[in-house]
């Protein structure tokens, strides 16, 4: 149990070390075996993890990694959850008053009989569009963390197209698009931030950028 735990902590420490400290991470991992042979593996591994975190904060490369993860965990994944939730739970946040599908179908409203059929036909397409946008948020987060900028660009373009379609679609149905517009605004901010992160990555690792452009 303790061996498995210390091994896991050591693996985490190695993963947290930046690219430029890869050799040091390997050096620590090899010394870990010497510490394990003397029964001090957990203490050694915790120390290495602390060292890796300290390096993350001290070095620009580390701050870049932290920023990327903060963007993914703090904005992209919540946006994905919101949009997938909207799609799967009857779009509760997308319509004014947060009444969800019932609100969209004008239940109890004067126009209910007239418009209900149209809206019922439109809702599956809206839901699929939102679901795709939510999944695209997860995809772009993953691509960003992998520094696959060509995939980020492709996904971002598709997301913008999808979000614009959503707003136009809702406009054509005379639905209040305030929430959809808000989501588009968040998407624009998100993509702008991703482009800043991409530029930062290009400054830090020019070789990786050259390799990416060859692909």
């Amino acid at each position: 149990m303790s061996t498995a735990l210390s091994q896991a902590v050591m693996t985490l420490a190695v993963c947290c070390m930046g690219e430029s400290r890869r050799g040091w991470a390997l050096a620590m991992q090899i010394e870990f075996e010497a510490a394990a042979a003397e029964g001090r593996s957990l203490r050694f591994a915790i120390g290495c993890l602390a060292a890796a975190w300290r390096e993350l904060l001290v070095r620009e490369e580390g701050r870049f990694v932290l920023t990327s993860y903060a963007l993914a965990l703090g904005l992209m994944i919540p946006m994905a959850a919101l949009q997938i939730g909207c799609a799967l739970l009857g779009l509760p946040y997308l319509y004014p008053g947060q009444k969800g599908l019932a609100g969209a179908l004008l239940e109890g409203g004067t126009h209910e009989a007239l418009l209900r059929g149209v809206y019922q036909a439109a809702v599956p397409s809206l839901a699929v569009l939102l679901l795709l946008l939510g999944v695209a948020h997860l995809r772009i987060a993953w691509a960003m963390l992998e520094h696959d900028w060509s995939r980020v660009t492709r996904t971002g373009t598709l997301m913008l197209a999808g979000a614009a379609t959503l707003v136009i679609f809702m406009g054509a149905l005379f639905l209040d698009g305030t929430q959809a517009l808000l989501q588009v605004a968040v998407l624009v901010v998100e993509l702008a931030t991703v482009s800043v992160v991409a530029r930062w990555h290009a400054q830090l690792f020019p070789a990786a950028l050259a390799e990416d452009s060859v692909r």
């Binding site: 400290r21 040091w24 050096a27 620590m28 010394e31 010497a34 510490a35 203490r43 050694f44 591994a45 915790i46 120390g47 290495c48 993890l49 602390a50 060292a51 300290r54 390096e55 001290v58």
Partner: peptide, 22 residues
């Protein structure tokens, strides 16, 4: 000298020794 030997000799933890060596 190896990292673990230095740790034992100086009494420093790996969390202090390695950042210092780097």
């Amino acid at each position: 000298r190896h990292g673990y030997d230095l740790m034992k000799e100086t009494g420093l933890s790996s969390g202090t020794l390695y950042p210092l060596l780097m």
